[in-house]
Design a protein around this nucleic acid. Structure first.
Length: 299
DNA sequence: AGCTCTTCCTGAAAGC
DNA sequence: TGCTTTCAGGAAGAGC
């Protein structure tokens, strides 16, 4: 499923073929994952692609009108989330259409951008140029850019399970189930640990693990579990380097204990029971002497 | 604040 | 063999 490394790989691929191209025609199949399909079909044709960037797990295609006539349409962004099974590929217009392909964006070079999504958990929307800041405001820090102090601040005061925080796009944007589990293994933290109970050293280990795992996954062009492929239809290779994700019952690479799977924060979570010891039972004896702040009005 | 449950959707896998 | 059931999960919303 596409998370930050997969989306980054797709974006880098799109960046090779899309910028400079104009969109000449838009067609949709099913549209229940599109915020306003009629508006997209009306406004995209005639616009030129100025650039492709990634915002968390979103792909952001900047569109600008040709020339600078007074009546030219304003620039805006075409934003796409791949959900669980979304694929964006650039292909010659005549090529056979894969099943579950619901978006066709014909380009001025005889190719087209196609959107395929088996489960249609993806999303498409338009954001005006002036609205991009607000859109970004709904997202947390980019995990590859957040500094140690900010990371400590965001995690160190939260009573939620650390896995839930890693998955919360308003704290860090781009991490999903695979990279949450892989990061926690590398930081040797059980997914159910309460963030504010972690030491500074443990949080710094997690900060480092997140960045290392994501960077390594990008170098491998992402993880192909289920349906992920890049913009050329190629699979990634990071799934071959997973330490815990979907390795239930298999031996830990570090200590040989059997990898376990449990539901944490509502998600299937994979961990090594020996390298990532479970927290004390919630509500059990607390021996820490940290005063409990109720309103959180400090700092 | 943070937890659980529900919804969306399809295909793979398990159960009978 | 062939049917039915269960499950996976990103994100948002409801309700506690």
């Amino acid at each position: 499923m596409p998370e930050l490394p997969e989306v980054e790989t797709v974006v880098r691929g799109l960046r090779v073929s899309l910028p400079g191209r104009a969109i000449v025609e838009v067609r949709f199949g099913k549209t229940d994952f599109v915020d306003n399909p009629a508006e997209i079909a009306e406004r995209l044709p005639g616009m030129r692609i100025a650039g492709v960037t990634r915002l968390g797990k979103f792909i952001c295609i900047a569109l600008a009108a040709e020339g600078a006539r007074a009546a030219a349409p304003s620039p805006f962004y075409f934003i796409i989330h791949l959900g669980m099974t979304g694929q964006l590929t650039v292909i010659r217009s005549g090529e056979p259409v894969a099943a579950h392909t619901h978006g066709f964006f014909a380009l001025d070079d005889g190719r087209e951008l196609r959107y395929t999504d088996i489960r249609r958990f993806g999303r498409m929307l338009l954001v005006p140029e002036a609205g991009l800041a607000e859109f970004k405001g709904h997202l947390g820090h980019e995990p590859l850019e957040i500094g140690a102090e900010e990371f400590l601040r965001d995690f160190g005061s939260r009573r939620a399970r650390v896995k839930a925080l890693l998955l919360d796009q308003k704290i860090l944007c781009g991490i999903g189930n695979i990279y949450a589990d892989e990061s926690l293994f590398r930081a040797r933290l059980h997914p159910a640990r309460i963030a504010e109970n972690l030491t500074r050293k443990q949080l710094l280990a997690l900060h480092r693990a997140v960045r290392e795992v994501l960077a390594a996954a990008i170098r491998c062009r992402g993880s192909s579990v289920s349906d992920y492929v890049d913009s050329e239809g190629k699979r990634g290779e990071f799934q071959l380097r997973h330490r815990v994700y979907q390795r239930t019952g298999k031996p830990c690479f570090r200590c040989k204990a059997k990898i376990r799977r449990a539901i944490v924060a509502g998600r299937g979570s994979h961990f090594c029971p020996r390298c990532q010891p479970a927290p004390r039972k919630r509500g059990g004896a607390r021996k820490d002497l940290k005063p409990r702040m109720h309103a959180g009005a400090d700092g």
